[in-house]
Design a protein around this nucleic acid. Structure first.
Lengths: 227, 227
DNA sequence: CGTAGTATTGACTAGGCTCAAGGGTGGTGG
DNA sequence: CCACCACCCTTGAGCCTAGTCAATACTACG
């Protein structure tokens, strides 16, 4: 990836097919292109932080973004990892209230930005977009209900298995590449505990590590463990 | 409450002011009244269960409803408690997928029902309603992000304090009246553990129990504990 | 006034957290 | 290109929170 801003045209964007904008006509996409701006982010750069006022939404062209909330001691809890095609930050748009989560890149990323007024305006004039958004919000709510239940009822070993499955999906054909700290903050455990369970999984030939990168060898077994 | 169905007119509904429909004109409310049906539910009666197909949304006129998800061992995790004015079950409407949560009354309730087609139709023709819904969904997402973080990072004592604050809000001027099991399934702990912390709170004069009902004496202290 | 469902208490155990100390690795500057 | 340094990763030991199992007390309701 070029280490500087590339202004992607939405019509050529390879991530659009995964996004809210997948149903857009050529014309709509061109309009969208004209509205949005595009930015390169290095690793570990914030898109927005908890407490700030939303000015628009972020659309990931390339890269990965962690969305997290800080507990009272400042410890991060990762809520989700966004990648190609994901739109970040629209939840806070409608309430007019400050963000209650933060978002930070975890690798180099190209991320487009659409201003609040433009996005809301599109929403007003595009029924399909509105329906996609409602669907998206519903999915997210469902996923969080499961997350809460997992947190409450599953062991760290089981939670780690499900998180690895989620990450395996996000990292598709590459190895999972995420810091141990982020992984533990996603799983909801201490870093040391996380590492111990990774070790177990290695010994059971479920995963392989290439320095910090994780390769999933046995997805089926992970499913069983996540049960 | 009459132990049978009372057909409430939305124009007279005292809970409408808390609901998605708060901005409705007299005319809109009359239309809504004509569409909806109204049902009396006894204690512990299901509105819908996980895996079934959504046919519409439920609007609580009076009573309390727990929304929960079952973990793999069948243990319930309560996600939220709905009361007067809350609309339950709209998340699943847009995705067309089965419910991933269940909803059951925890006390006698009057609950109205609006069919899927009617509700979606209203949504199409009423911008205000749509905006209210988006706001509602956003709030819910935010609340679940906090819930996840609390689950991951707070002790049972701290979580119980926040849950009691939430319930204090829901039960306004009455004592909190919920089974110990439901309370533990909301807090995300074992019933025995929950009871031990309730005892602690009693000894610290933070709460008082009237048989199973809970009276909050010191809200401020609960805030501090929930921190 | 009995009975079933809840609530409570006690004793024990284990899962996972914290603290503390090494071991790797990648990035940077000479 | 290599050496150093900072940061991240890994391992060990001990403790503590909270879960499980088992027994007993309450309470509402027929």
């Amino acid at each position: 990836m070029a280490k500087s801003t590339q202004n992607i045209n939405c019509n050529q964007c390879t991530s659009r097919g995964n996004s809210l904008f997948k149903g857009f006509s050529h014309e709509d996409s061109s309009k969208l292109s004209a509205l949005k701006s595009c930015n390169y982010y290095g690793k570990n750069q914030p898109l927005f932080i908890e407490g700030s006022i939303p000015r628009g939404v972020y659309c990931i062209n390339k890269g990965k973004v962690k969305v997290f909330k800080r507990g009272d001691e400042g410890k991060e809890q990762i809520i989700k990892i966004g990648s190609n095609g994901d739109i970040i930050g629209f939840k806070a748009l409608f309430s007019g209230e400050p963000f209650i989560v933060s978002a930070t890149t975890i690798e180099e990323s190209n991320i487009c930005f659409i201003g609040k007024a433009d996005f809301l305006n599109m929403l007003d004039h595009n029924n399909d977009l509105r329906n996609e958004l409602l669907k998206e919000l519903s999915k997210e709510l469902a996923s969080r209900a499961s997350f809460i239940t997992n947190m409450a009822q599953k062991t760290v070993r089981e939670r780690l298995a499900s998180i690895l499955l989620i990450l395996g999906d996000i990292y598709k054909n590459e190895y999972i590449n995420i810091s141990r700290e982020d992984l533990s903050n996603y799983t909801g455990t201490a870093t040391e505990t996380l590492i111990r369970f990774l070790k177990e999984f290695k010994e059971e030939k479920i995963i392989l590590t290439h320095s910090r990168k994780i390769e999933i060898l046995d997805q089926k077994k992970l499913f069983e463990i996540a049960s």
